[in-house]
């Protein structure tokens, strides 16, 4: 006895099973990155040639500190989705494809936590 109708089973499940989620998050992070990249480019231009004290003041400001964290986390999420597609396209051996994806995922999480931790430590001391 089946209680789920075919549409509910099919919804969101392409040939890659969870492909819609990947596609959707890639677009969502891309849209978020449009203003974030714009802010990042202007910030880097403004920070060019400045000394460390100036850079730290910039990182410590609530607005720039938060937006820098958002830029870092969003771009790492987006990068992980993109790298996943690249590995799926070019790596045939299943074990190598899977281990590449897992390594890239761990690296993205590690970089994100490290960057945000450094910014938090800068603001809250310790």
């Amino acid at each position: 006895m089946k209680y789920r109708n075919p549409l509910s089973i099919a919804r969101g499940l392409g040939s890659s099973k969870d492909g819609l989620g990947h596609w959707w998050m890639q677009r969502l992070t891309a849209i978020a990155l449009v203003p974030l990249v714009f802010w990042f480019a202007l910030s880097i231009i403004a920070l060019a040639g400045q000394d460390r004290a100036h850079v730290l003041t910039w990182m410590q400001s609530p607005f720039h500190g938060v937006v820098l964290s958002l830029f870092l986390v969003t771009s790492l999420y987006h990068a992980n989705l993109g790298l996943q597609a690249v590995f799926e396209d070019y790596i045939q051996a299943r074990w190598l494809q899977l281990s590449s994806r897992i390594t890239a995922g761990f690296a993205a999480v590690f970089l994100g936590f490290t960057g945000v931790f450094a910014l938090l430590r800068l603001v809250f001391g310790g």
């Binding site: 990182m59 790492l76 450094a118």
Partner: peptide, 14 residues
């Protein structure tokens, strides 16, 4: 390149 961005943040904070 995101490795470089994190390294830059860490270097400034460190």
């Amino acid at each position: 390149g995101s490795i470089l961005l994190v390294a830059w943040i860490l270097s400034a904070v460190h």
